[in-house]
Design a protein around this nucleic acid. Sequence first.
DNA 1: TTCGGGTTGTGAACCGGTTCGAACCTAACC
DNA 2: GGTTAGGTTCGAACCGGTTCACAACCCGAA
Lengths: 339, 339
Amino acid sequence: MVTIGDVARLAGVSRSTVSYALSGKRAISDQARGRVEAAVRELGYTPNAGARALATSQTMVIGLLARFLEDEFAPAMLQYMLGVSNTARELGYDLLLSTEEDGTRALRRMSDSRMVDGVVLLNVADEDDRLPVLRAAPQPGALVGLPGDCTGVDVFDLDFEEAGRLMVDHLVRLGHRELILVSQPEHVVERGGAYVWRLQNAAREAARARGVVLHAAFGSSRQPEIGRDLTGLLDTYPDATGLILNNEAAAAALPSVLHERGLSAPRDLSVIGRYSEEFASTFSLHYSAVESAPDRLGRMAVRQLVRRIEGEISPDDPYVVRFVSPELVDRGSTGTPPA
Amino acid sequence: MVTIGDVARLAGVSRSTVSYALSGKRAISDQARGRVEAAVRELGYTPNAGARALATSQTMVIGLLARFLEDEFAPAMLQYMLGVSNTARELGYDLLLSTEEDGTRALRRMSDSRMVDGVVLLNVADEDDRLPVLRAAPQPGALVGLPGDCTGVDVFDLDFEEAGRLMVDHLVRLGHRELILVSQPEHVVERGGAYVWRLQNAAREAARARGVVLHAAFGSSRQPEIGRDLTGLLDTYPDATGLILNNEAAAAALPSVLHERGLSAPRDLSVIGRYSEEFASTFSLHYSAVESAPDRLGRMAVRQLVRRIEGEISPDDPYVVRFVSPELVDRGSTGTPPA
DNA sequence: TTCGGGTTGTGAACCGGTTCGAACCTAACC
DNA sequence: GGTTAGGTTCGAACCGGTTCACAACCCGAA
């Protein structure tokens, strides 16, 4: 392994001169710098990350704590992860990924042993057990997902309230008077998935304000249960003409359910969902949707985190809670209700 | 930050004694060990990872080089990643994730700066540009995916030949005499995705051996193109009674295509695909399939890598190329051909 | 000629661990 | 009683970087 000492010897200068020549933190004569650079090239020198981390107490690594839960749609997580990963790299950071069941253990390990300069938490629950650990840690943290208590961390999330309102308003404007909303399983809510409630409550509120009926239900997360759920709902509310999906499995299962009943959207039923463009195109879903832009959230979280790491923002500066507005993409699965 | 010196001071011993007491690499009196352990607990001491890496030249980190390519099904990659991640953690390693476009750069960075003890490469192409870099690196590497040249690395992949044979044989045994095989886009093959060919050739060979007709075609990777592809194929080969899918997008799009034509499986057409159980259940696909067990491949790769890292296997020991046999899961979408 | 200031380079200390060789103490043995 | 062996512990060196304090040098101005 080639070290800074080898470079110094070949260039005929001291180790500190090599360090300064490479970091640019002090003026070095053109001559010396030239010799150092030549030596670096000749030897193929790359600084040892561990040694540098030890000396600077900076690792240039960000921890990413993913959280895969049952009854949640795993591929959606991938979008967040990619946003985080790509942005981190653009800003010069590498990514230490943990998919460990026990997020608190992973977080403690990364933080205590100083493997990371900061941490991004994905899929944050209302009362997330990782948060107390993060607040006690010396490294800054950024969240994707809204917890009950946001003190001491920067938070980024989709504006689920707005998403709920948007979908109801869209259908009401087309003339629908009775709607069904299928949410994620109740289980997800109980576990702390507050976004389910946030969307549902806002949708209810919007429906009441517009004077229309909204039947809100939880759906399963798997076949064949979710198919039966959908069938049951359509049977129970035969007069409903608008269907709102906040449940990826339901979106994936709907085409065959509609087929079986001989229905088609938007002729017999207007359908609108909440999922990302990526999800729609990957799974060939041509329903209109409000998009959740997961990679954008990951990107924002990392940007803010790096600002904190690099001291551009101090711990005294206020922490942000930022909501991204969803956008409605019309894919033609909604229209006026049947006569 | 609390260091080994702080622990030593509180316990009234030297730093080396603390180190030995914690690592167990030398005998330490019960008395001293007790005092050290108490001090560790009281101070909440955790060794600094960078310092330890520097001293031992072991990082206890594995690099994971994912590779997301256009026209490939991203969520499948997630399964591999999870297998790798979980197994690494079980074996005491953390994971440095790169999703960088230029895999060679990421690999060089991780390797040269000694951030990782070994590397797992996902989605390896026939002539993968990361391989020369990996062979020149001092760290061992394990691959998921079969490259043209396997020297110097351990390789794990699904047995795509076997998968192709299995599907053809299954349909032939049921009485089918004319089959269609839809593969991934040709683009993927040209880029080095050899698995497409491997399955296709083996399927062709098996069809010839059984004396049945096989129409092999490349399909798109997206809607609506893949839907048109499928429709076109069914129009072109109206006598085909068996459909083999080696293309996730096709599997996702097929239900609506069949619906439009008023067909149902297996009554009018027997359908069998190649994808993981995870994929099938997430996307509500109830087609029979040969399963690709991605998490198992990730797990095997990490196991072998760690054996190399820890010197249980030396670089002189032969490198392995191991194929996992696919398993046929019958979900009832295949049957005897219509009369 | 001398002095002061700026530029460039060096040596040493430091980051926080691990590990080697030697020293120390005690008990056992001759 | 002296020697030896074995079990513990310690000090120092080392891993490969960064950075501080200081020295040498050069230039121009007084």
